[in-house]
Structures are given as structure tokens and as C-alpha cells.
Write a protein that binds this DNA or RNA. Structure first.
Lengths: 249, 249
DNA sequence: ACCAAATTCATTCAAAAACAATCAAATGCG
DNA sequence: CGCATTTGATTGTTTTTGAATGAATTTGGT
């Protein structure tokens, strides 16, 4: 096991659980206490963690200036709570549509119920789902390189054959008047069709998406439920004609 | 083993696992520590990797991929030379079918020509291809968790709409009498259809596949070209009615 | 709140592993 | 053949590692 491999393992563990114990790392990485201690020292110098008695914890400052890395972490955090809430809505025997995108990707880790079927247009999503032994159907079609999402007529045609219990859709903008929007017309077409084919549809969106408008409308504010994270944005006016679920930190 | 071949193997390994160890490379490439060290130096200058104590790591994405599972290196090497030979057959403007599987995956790293379209049933293949900016179409359908390959009626139906210049197919057994075989009937159906839809078909198979028979026949020994690595297996009797391309070590 | 036991910690040191630099032999090529 | 390049072995240096020591911290009982 190389030094850098140990660093990766430790950072990954911290990202997941927020805290690591020296003893656990010793047995997990199969090396001595001194080595773990040195690793933690090094990672602390790099600013990745804070050493505490017995191990180390993730650093996460709320009110200070955020570095790019921390910001992306905060973003991940937001997506995690949204993903958790969304996953809790999934019931036994559901047939789900899971849209491509990072927010919907966060849902997968929290799916607890077995015996569901998921249809997705995200390549990574399909790969991860099948790792978790979930019955997975991937829409065929052209791959959009930037987002690893399936788009195009072939995907749309495949989608026409399905009916879902629930659809989880990612978007880029939410606007009171104009509704939910996304920049790519081809991706928007998939999202629209999935919403139409589903008994209930959920828009997952972190707070950065609110009060933004993008190129193509996916849906208006009625007929869908929006899952977002709690924030200081005032959503009372939205709530008049839209169901909003807020995930608490 | 040529210098450039070592470079390819190292880059290939890095792409897969994100980290390589000097010791492993020594035994795998069958050369001295000095040579590996020089190779890593050179590839670092070219910007392909970052040297670390004990080996080297991929430069882009920093903190993913914690567990670098170590595969059979010799096997990887065989697949690399096969992949290289197979990729050299691809011409400008070709429309290719690329079967799922590790041997076909090795082809992707060596695709040099631009402006080709690849249809594949391998999830990882599609992801990697789109990383390389290759126009990629992924067959839709159910995902087989163990191999991350698309199977089932939906995939077959999608496949019916296409015609290919060349198909690269992986198999599990080659037998003089019974032909090329694979254990899974659903995967076999895809392979069969792809061969039927292609002007030329190439079976890629390392030497471990020779003189083995599996459950389902994919094709007999005529009508296809077999790409394999040079070995001590006597292939003269096969060559009477089959075209065989041997990749030199 | 106090003390004692158990952990955890920082520091030091020697062994092992990986390293860079060098040189001669092997190889490839015109 | 002669030249340039590549390779493997050797050398001594640097880095990493695990064990040992005693100091600091936490824990649990009274």
C-alpha cells in the first residue's frame, strides 16, 4: 500500500463519515500506528482535516470564506441531504425513473428498499445502481460527453414504452413564473417525457437553482413536487401553488 | 517489449486504476527497476502522470478511486497487445460495434482515428469512449450487474436498427469443431446479432480462450477473423478455415 | 472532584524500501 | 562495422516505516 493510496482512503472516509479513528485506520490499512499518525499529520498540514484525540475529523467552516474545494464539499453536502430525503420516498416494488445529473446521483447511495426497478438515462447512475444489485434499465441512445447522459430520438423512443411510479428529475433553474428549466433541449425532452410517464414526479434541486431561468422549460410549478435543501431563500410565495419538501441539514 | 509499448501499458493501467507501483510494473513488464523509473520519468515529463514514492498516480481527479484492485498483470498485458492490433484495423468514418468485456475495453485506449461512431453494449466502454470524444451510442436495456453489459429484448430491438462496418466481439471459448462460445445466452444473442449486422466481424480473445467450450455458440470458425496474442499454442489446424491475426509480444 | 488505569500521543532510532546517479553491456539502426 | 540509444547492475543517499520510550490525555470508579 503506497503512501498516496493511504491518503486517498483516509480522505474518502472523511468525506463519507466526517470522522476517522486511528485504530480503525491501522487495521483497515494494515500498517502501524506511527504511520497513520504521520499520515494524519501530513493531511492536516495540507488542510484536509483536523486532528483530534483518537483520530481526525473533517474541517467544515460555515461562516468563513470557502476555498474552491470546500465549496464543492458544501455542495456535495447539500446534494447528500437532498438525496437522502428523495430516497426515503421510494417504496417497495416501485418502478422509478432516475434522471442523469449529480443531484440524482446522490439519491442512489441512500436507496434502502430492495426489489425496485430503476430506469435511468445516466451512465454513471446505471453503473452504480447495478453495483448495488438494483434492477436497472438504461435508456439507449447517443451519449452526451459532458454529462454522460443519454439523449436523442432513440432514448425518447425507448422511454415511450415505460410507465413509472415516481420520477426524480434534476434541473438547472427554478423560477416562479417560468417554471423549471435546463440549458439543453435534448435533455429537456427526456425530462418532459419522463414526467409525463410517471404517476408522481419530483424535481431535485439545491438552493443554487432557485430564482434562475435557463433556456428550455421542463415543467411548470404545478404537478410536480420539489425537493430542495433548507436555506435562507424565502420560499413562501412558491409554496402557494407548489409542493416543496425541504431537507434539514 | 518496445519502449512505446511499455508506455502504453502504463498509461492503460493508470487509466484503469489511477495508481501504479514500480514493483508491480517491474514484474509485469519483465524489466528492471531502472527502466521503469526512466519510463515514469518520461511519462511525467509528457504530463501523463505524477510520480510518487513507490510508483506513480494519474494527474487528473485527485481523490477518487481508493481501492486499486490488482488484476492479473500478465492478462492485462495480453489484452493490451490484442487491443492495439484490433484498434489498428479501425479506419476513418467507420461505424463500429464494440462488445462489452475487458478485452474489447483494451481496444479503446488505442483508437487513433477521429470521426468514427461506436455502438456498444458495455457501460464502461461507453463512458470511456465519450471521455475520448468518440461519438458513442449505448444500446438500451437491462444491465447485467456482473459484467455491466446491456442484455435483453430492448437491446436486441435497438440493435436491429443498425448496420456496422466492423464488429469487435469478445468470447469465452474457441473450439475447432464447435466454434466460439460464451456462457450467457442473453449476451450470446447480442453478439450473434451484432455479427450478422456487420460487414466484417472480429473475435478478440487472449490465449486462455483457445480450445475451450462454453454453453452457447456465438459463431462458427468461418466468416469471422480472430484476433489473439502470440502464444505457444499451435494454431496451424485452425488456420485452414479461419483467418487469425496474431499480435506479437 | 480526585486518583488510578488505560489510551493516545510525540519523539527518537534503526531497519527496510525506494531513490538518483553512474557506468558498462546489450541492442537497434544506418 | 560504428554510432547512438536503451538497458540492467551497482553505488551511495534519501525516504519511509515500525518499534520503543516516556509524556499527555481521557476514562471510570469512588
Amino acid at each position: 500500500m503506497l503512501t498516496d493510496e493511504r491518503y486517498s482512503v483516509i480522505r474518502n472516509l472523511l468525506n463519507k463519515s466526517g470522522i476517522v479513528k486511528t485504530q480503525d485506520l491501522m487495521s483497515m490499512l494494515n500498517c502501524s500506528e506511527s504511520t497513520i499518525r504521520r499520515d494524519l499529520d501530513h493531511l492536516e498540514e495540507q488542510g484536509y482535516l483536523k486532528r483530534i484525540h483518537g483520530g481526525a475529523k473533517r474541517i467544515y467552516h460555515l461562516d468563513e470564506e470557502l476555498t474552491a474545494q470546500e465549496k464543492s464539499f458544501k455542495n456535495t453536502q447539500e446534494k447528500t441531504v437532498i438525496g437522502k430525503l428523495a430516497a426515503s420516498l421510494i417504496e417497495e416494488n416501485d418502478v422509478i425513473f432516475l434522471d442523469a445529473g449529480t443531484t440524482t446521483l446522490a439519491i442512489i447511495d441512500f436507496i434502502k428498499v430492495g426489489n425496485i426497478t430503476v430506469v435511468t438515462n445516466g451512465v454513471q447512475h446505471a453503473s452504480l445502481l447495478s453495483d448495488y444489485q438494483v434492477d436497472t434499465i438504461l435508456l439507449g441512445g447517443k451519449i452526451k460527453a459532458s454529462t454522460k447522459a443519454m439523449v436523442g430520438s432513440s432514448s425518447l423512443r425507448n422511454l415511450e414504452d415505460y410507465r413509472f411510479d415516481k420520477a426524480f428529475i434534476g434541473i438547472n433553474g427554478i423560477d416562479q413564473e417560468f417554471g423549471c428549466t435546463t440549458p439543453d433541449p435534448e435533455e429537456a425532452a427526456i425530462k418532459k417525457l419522463a414526467i409525463a410517464a410517471s404517476a408522481s414526479s419530483y424535481i431535485v434541486a439545491d438552493q443554487s437553482k432557485w430564482n434562475k431561468v435557463n433556456f428550455v422549460r421542463v415543467c411548470d410549478m404545478s404537478n410536480v413536487t420539489i425537493i430542495t435543501n433548507h436555506s435562507d431563500i424565502d420560499l413562501t410565495s412558491f409554496k402557494e401553488n407548489t409542493t416543496i419538501l425541504e431537507a434539514e441539514k
